[in-house]
Design a protein around this nucleic acid. Structure first.
Lengths: 346, 346
DNA sequence: TATACACGGGACATTTTTTGTCCCTTAAAG
DNA sequence: CTTTAAGGGACAAAAAATGTCCCGTGTATA
C-alpha cells in the first residue's frame, strides 16, 4: 500500500520508473566515487559520454549535482534525495522482494541486496561495502563490541564507514593470515575503530596453529583477555570464501586440500570448511572466534558477493549461526533460482 | 507523508511527472466525453492531432484505451486507473494545496478545485459538474433529503450523476424563474432524483412574489408541506450568480437594479444579493429556502466556477452559511491572490 | 435508402531532438 | 614545468517527434 503509487505510474508512465532508476543510479555512483569526471563516470555506468551528459545536465539544473574543475559531486540536496529514495528504488528494482524471499529461504533475520554482480563489476564490491557500512552505522550502539574478520570484502566496509564518534570497541575475530597487510583482521579492526571514533585491540597471533602452540598462546594473558572480550561481542562482521581457493591461499597441505575437495567442500568461514549443505568437513586449529562462540552472539553478519560465491554463501548460511547477510543481486538470483528449480521438481 | 514519493520524484524526474499529468488529462477528458475521435479530442485538449495521437497510441498499448469506429473510450483498467490516480494528480497539480488554503481562507469544511477556467473552456464547467456529482454520490446516504437550486451549473451536476439506487428525496430549493425549462430547480430536482433512483417533489410556484401572494401561497397545503421538508434537508446544492447579470435576467425593476449597483452588489444566491464583504444588500421575496433556514442544514454546498464569478463566490462564502465549495482553479487563484496582496500590504 | 460526416490508421516529408565525436581552456597533481 | 583529467562548447549525423494529408469504414442524419 505505501508505494502503491509506483504501480499506478507503471501503468500510466512506464518509462518514468526506468528513468528514475537510471538517474538514481547516477547519483548513487556519484556518491561513492565523487568527485569524478563525466567520461570516467560514463565508463563506470556502461554508457556513453554524451548520454550521461544529458542526464547530468538535468541533475545539475535540478540542483542535485554541481560540476567543478575537479569533477562532479552531489550537493546536499542531492545527497538527501539519494537517501530518501533508497527504499523506493530498492522496491522498484525488485530488490526488496528478493531480500524477503532470500531471508525466508536461508532463515535469516535480515538480508540486504545490492544490484549487480561483484565478479563482473568491481564497483559492486564497493557498493556491498557501503551497504554493510550503512547497516553497521545504523545498528551500532555505544558500548558495543564489534568483531571483524579480514579479507578484501570486509576491507571495503572499512573504506566506506563514515567518520563518527561512537564509543565502541572493535576487535579482530581472527589472527593473522597471509601477507597483505591491509586485508588482515587486525588492520581492518584498527581502521574501522579509527573511523567510528572507538577503540580497538589486536590479536597478536597467527591464525593457524599447531595444538601445542595454541595451548601455550591461549595462556598468554593479553591474548586470553582479547579472546574473552571477543566472545562477548554483540556484532560480528565476517566474510565468506570459496573453499578451494581459500585453502590454497592459506597454504594448507595438499592432503588437506584433497580432503576438502573429496568431501565436496565449497565454503570457508572462520577457518571452517563447509560442503554445499553446510556440514563442516574440515576445521582448522584457529585462535579467535570459534563456531561454537557464534551462537551466543546477537548479530552475526556475513558480507560477501559475486556470482562465484553464491554456493559458498548459502552453505555458510546453512552451517553457521547467521542473522544478517549483505550480498549482491547475482548471489541472490543464483540462490533463489535453485529454490525455483526445487519447486519445479516437486 | 503519504505522497512524499511524489515530492522526491518532482526533484529527480520532473519531466516525467509532467507527462504523467498530461496523460492523466487525456484519460480524464476521455472519460467525460467518450466516445470521441482523435481530432475532436485534440481540439478539446488544445493540442495537435499528431501529438495526441502519439500519447493515445501509448495508452492504447497500455490497455487503458480502446479505439473503435465510433471513437475512443476508456477500458475498465483505464477507468480504474483514473479513479486511483485522481488524488495523486490533484496533489501533483498543486490543487490539493490550493484547496487547503482556500478552505482556510473562506472558513469552509471542504473545497474541491477543478483545473482550468470555466469562462475560458466550457469543458471545465462539465468537470465542475462531474466533481460535484462525485462529491454528492460519496456523501449521500439513504433517507437523505437533498435540495437543489436551478441554473446552468447545477444542471451540469445533474448531467454527470451516475445512475444509482438510493432512497433519497430531491427537492427544488426555489420556485420557478425565467424561461429555460431545463435549468429550473424543479426540472433539475426531477432529473437528479431520476438518476439517483430516488423520489422528488415539485414546488409549483414562481420564485418571486408579492407579499400578499406569498402569504396565500404559504397557506397552500402541498406547498407548505414541501417547504417544511425543504427546511429539514441534510444537503443543499446551490449555484452562485453575479449580482447585476442575475438581477437583469430576473427582470428586476430598474430601481432595484440601481439599488443593487449602488450598494456594490456583486453576488446572488437563493434570491439574496451580497456585496463584496458578504453583506446582504437586497433580498427578494422568495418562496423556497431562506438564508435563515440554511443555518440548520448540515451541508450547504456551493457549486460555481469561472474567473468572472470569483468575487461573487467569495462574497457568498462570507455572507452565507456554507460548508462546501466546488469550483475551478481560476476562481481559487483569484481569491488566493487577494490573500497574497493583503499579506504583502501588511 | 442515400449521403455526408467523423472515425482510426497508414504514409511521408519536415522539423526537432538526441547522440557521437572532437576540441579547447583550466586547474590540480606529479 | 609538464601531464592529466576536468567541464563546457561546437557541430554533423542519426534518430525521433511532428504536421499534414489521404483512405476505407461505419454511423447517424436527411
Amino acid at each position: 500500500m505505501p508505494n502503491h503509487l509506483l504501480e499506478l505510474q507503471q501503468q500510466l508512465v512506464p518509462d518514468l520508473i526506468e528513468t528514475m532508476k537510471k538517474r538514481y543510479r547516477i547519483l548513487y555512483h556519484l556518491s561513492l566515487t565523487q568527485p569524478i569526471g563525466r567520461r570516467a563516470l560514463a565508463q563506470q555506468l556502461q554508457t556513453t559520454e554524451r548520454i550521461l551528459r544529458a542526464e547530468v545536465d538535468l541533475l545539475k539544473d535540478g540542483g542535485l549535482i554541481v560540476a567543478e574543475t575537479v569533477g562532479m559531486h552531489l550537493t546536499e540536496r542531492g545527497f538527501n534525495l539519494l537517501a530518501q529514495l533508497a527504499d523506493v528504488i530498492r522496491e522498484a528494482e525488485g530488490l526488496a522482494e528478493k531480500e524477503r524471499r532470500l531471508a525466508e529461504r536461508l532463515g535469516l533475520k535480515e538480508v540486504r541486496i545490492v544490484a549487480g554482480d561483484a565478479d563482473a563489476d568491481p564497483f559492486v564490491k564497493r557498493a556491498i561495502g557501503h551497504a554493510a557500512a550503512d547497516w553497521l552505522t545504523r545498528t551500532l550502539q555505544p558500548g558495543d563490541i564489534l568483531a571483524v574478520t579480514g579479507g578484501t570484502t570486509i576491507a571495503t566496509v572499512a573504506d566506506s564507514i563514515a567518520r563518527a564518534k561512537l564509543s565502541v570497541e572493535v576487535l579482530p575475530a581472527r589472527g593473522g593470515v597471509g601477507e597483505h597487510m591491509e586485508f588482515q583482521a587486525n588492520a581492518i579492526a584498527a581502521r574501522i575503530a579509527a573511523q567510528l571514533g572507538g577503540t580497538y585491540r589486536l590479536l597478536h597471533a597467527p591464525d593457524v596453529l599447531s595444538d601445542e602452540a595454541l595451548q601455550s598462546l591461549t595462556h598468554d594473558p593479553p591474548i586470553q583477555d582479547t579472546l574473552s572480550r571477543l566472545r562477548s561481542a554483540r556484532i560480528v562482521l565476517h566474510g565468506i570464501g570459496q573453499a578451494i581457493p581459500m585453502a590454497k591461499r592459506r597454504r594448507l597441505t595438499a592432503k588437506s586440500i584433497e580432503q576438502i575437495e573429496s568431501h565436496g567442500g565449497i565454503a570457508e568461514a572462520f577457518g571452517y570448511y563447509f560442503d554445499e549443505l553446510g556440514n563442516i568437513i574440515y576445521a582448522m586449529n584457529t585462535v579467535g572466534l570459534r563456531l561454537s562462540d557464534l551462537k551466543r552472539i546477537e548479530r552475526v553478519v556475513a558480507v560477501a558477493g559475486g556470482s562465484s560465491k553464491a554456493k559458498a554463501i548459502s552453505a555458510v548460511a546453512y552451517g553457521c549461526p547467521l542473522q544478517v547477510l549483505i550480498t549482491d543481486e547475482a548471489v541472490a538470483d543464483a540462490i533463489l533460482q535453485i529454490e525455483e528449480q526445487e519447486a519445479r521438481e516437486r
